[in-house]
Nucleic acid binder design. Structure first.
Lengths: 206, 206
DNA sequence: ACTTACATACATGCACGGATGTATGTATAT
DNA sequence: ATATACATACATCCGTGCATGTATGTAAGT
């Protein structure tokens, strides 16, 4: 075979990403060989190794494809609710659920990272980026809680970090369950309701 | 080598379970070979294949080792708080966090099932049992919410199933985060606080 | 306009290790 | 004597990484 144009090469790269995403998502990362991916995309392992260093690099590329839109969504919330920290907390928490329910790539990646991927040295790379975003996000959320407490939207006695941790747990936990059984409930509505309840509960803490 | 007594055989079986638990927990299920397990236990694959059919069967046995104490704990709550549904909800939710923080086997298994194991056809068996218990537990929790609503401990307008789902998400999500970074927070205290906040929030729902 | 030279975009093949499953050996408890 | 509790040995398959082949796009020189 022979060289393609840059556009065609980019297209095969995307094809490989899409194929890998689907196979990882259904069969698990370590149970999917690079050969499986290549053949499912009607290519060979040569193509895979041309575009990516190895399986871990492929996984990392999959995550990077959805990381940007995710962060942009969070930043959009910052702009829209610039003056209301409590609203920002709710919106950001719900944004994750909304996005995962709406964007197929995001859904697939979350499915892979939460259920179809072993948390091990081999998958570091994608994991590292994932965790980085998470840490940043948690730190930001803790700050939001501090601001909300300072503005008296939440009681002064509240532990900001612990509250943020609880919120994160709530959102990720619901996400986790939804990924396991998507038919059971609507992730957007359930997350919104649960987050509201949790925040209301924090408000009436003595 | 030669035949051992039944007690000795049982001991090697436990040894295999313990070493498998540790290796799975640190390196991931699919990145741990049966040979790794055997050698770490100063045995051979022959011993592994004598006691277990294959890797999936081993994983299943690991889960079964902790499933009974887990359920017994939940039943104990039923006896202790026979007359107070709201207290049962809180206690059961916290029982998971308490147990995972106190019992090393439970910690290891949860770590394996949530982070070190791909959710795939190969790991069905353990997964199936895990899910079964979870389903049962969720159904029970939904009933608890119904009872609490009927007894006016929670508002009549509340959706029992959705509330139970939220609680489950909260508990599992906190568990998930704690497994990722155990140094960051105390799972017992954080779970208790978050569960209390969530329930308080549900109470003041209109 | 046409060749040249090179980089690109893959395909193909091989060497290697490693994992599984099973068949068989063997020594001992009962 | 026989079933048990393993160890050993063997056959098979699979996945990875790399080295190499190959045909084309592309830019530059003339």
């Amino acid at each position: 075979m022979a060289r393609k144009t840059k556009e065609e090469a980019q297209a095969t790269r995307e094809l490989l990403l899409d194929t890998a995403e689907q196979l990882f998502s259904t069969h698990g990362v370590s149970h999917t060989s690079l050969n499986d991916i290549a053949r499912a995309a009607s290519l060979t392992r040569g193509a895979v190794y041309w575009h990516f260093d190895n399986k871990a690099d492929l996984l990392k590329a999959l995550w990077e494809r959805v990381a940007l839109p995710l962060q942009q969504g969070l930043e959009a919330v910052d702009r829209e609710q610039a003056s209301n920290p409590r609203a920002r907390i709710v919106q950001k928490a719900c944004w994750m659920a909304d996005h995962i329910g709406a964007d197929a790539h995001m859904l697939a990646i979350m499915n892979i990272l939460m259920l179809r991927c072993e948390f091990t040295a081999e998958t570091e790379g994608a994991r590292a980026h994932f965790r980085e975003v998470r840490e940043e996000c948690l730190a930001g959320m803790t700050d939001e809680f501090r601001t909300a407490i300072a503005q008296q939207q939440l009681p002064l006695t509240l532990d900001a970090e612990r509250s943020a941790l609880g919120l994160f747990g709530l959102v990720d936990g619901l996400c986790f369950h939804w990924l396991i059984d998507r038919e059971r409930f609507c992730i957007q509505a359930c997350t919104r309701a649960a987050v509201e309840a949790y925040l209301s509960g924090l408000e009436c803490t003595r």
